[in-house]
Simulated assay, not measured.
Amino acid sequence: MNIAPQRVVTLHYVLSDAQGQVLDDSRARATPLDYLHGHDNIMAALERALAGHAAGDRLVVTLAPHEAYGERNDELVQQVGRGAFPQDALAPGMRFQTPGDDGPQIVTVLEVRDDSVVVDTNHPLAGQTLSYALEVLEVREATRAELAKGHPLAADVTPSAVEDRKLP
């Protein structure tokens, strides 16, 4: 069965940056990724590259920044009041997830001052060319429940017992 809309795809991936440094590896966690093709569960460019492939296929997909997490935007580096952070111990490099206009966003602390904090709301991988080494493990038809939810459901529980969740 080939990858097409309304099908659940199970795959392993290794994500690397342009220098070949591994940033994420599903095999290292022993947890493959399941996604519902055609439902925006993964990046559109990855979906396009995977379309038509079948279980057993391996491919490498390289994404330019605009196809992945976008270009870096210097306007997204901002100074905010210190009171916006509940933690007393803040340090450069710390990351927080906050609500954003388009869903949750990651905020990275760049500098901590007495009365303010300089943060970067660009995605940590913004501006980077990324390479995905993909191995398709399984392709199957989605269930009605999965189509209704818009993502794969765990196989060992009933659909009503599954909480809404976002795929990585």
Rank of each mutant, 00 (worst) to 15 (best):
T98Y: 12
L76S: 00
I106R: 13
T129R: 14
G127N: 07
L90T: 05
L125K: 04
A91Y: 04
P86M: 08
T129P: 02
L137T: 03
G81K: 04
V109Y: 05
Q79S: 15
F85W: 11
A91K: 12
G70V: 04
V119S: 06
S131E: 13
M94I: 01
E138Y: 00
V119W: 06
Q97M: 10
Q78G: 00
L134C: 15
L76N: 02
R113Y: 03
V118P: 00
Y132S: 08
E138T: 10
A68P: 03
V117A: 04
N122L: 10
E135M: 06
R140M: 04
T98D: 01
D102E: 15
Q105T: 12
L137S: 04
E141C: 03
R95T: 14
A133D: 15
S116Y: 11
D101E: 14
E67A: 12
G103R: 12
T129Y: 00
V77E: 10
Q128M: 14
E141G: 11
V119N: 07
P99L: 06
S131N: 01
D115Q: 15
F96H: 05
G127T: 06
Y132A: 13
A89K: 08
A68E: 01
G100W: 10
Q87E: 14
V109L: 06
G100T: 10
V118I: 15
R113E: 13
D102A: 13
A89G: 01
R82K: 06
L130C: 09
T129F: 01
P99C: 02
E138G: 00
N122P: 10
E75L: 12
R72C: 09
T108Q: 11
T121S: 13
S116N: 13
R72T: 12
E75G: 11
A89M: 04
Q87I: 03
G70L: 04
G127Y: 05
R82S: 02
S116F: 12
N73R: 14
N122D: 11
N122V: 08
I106W: 09
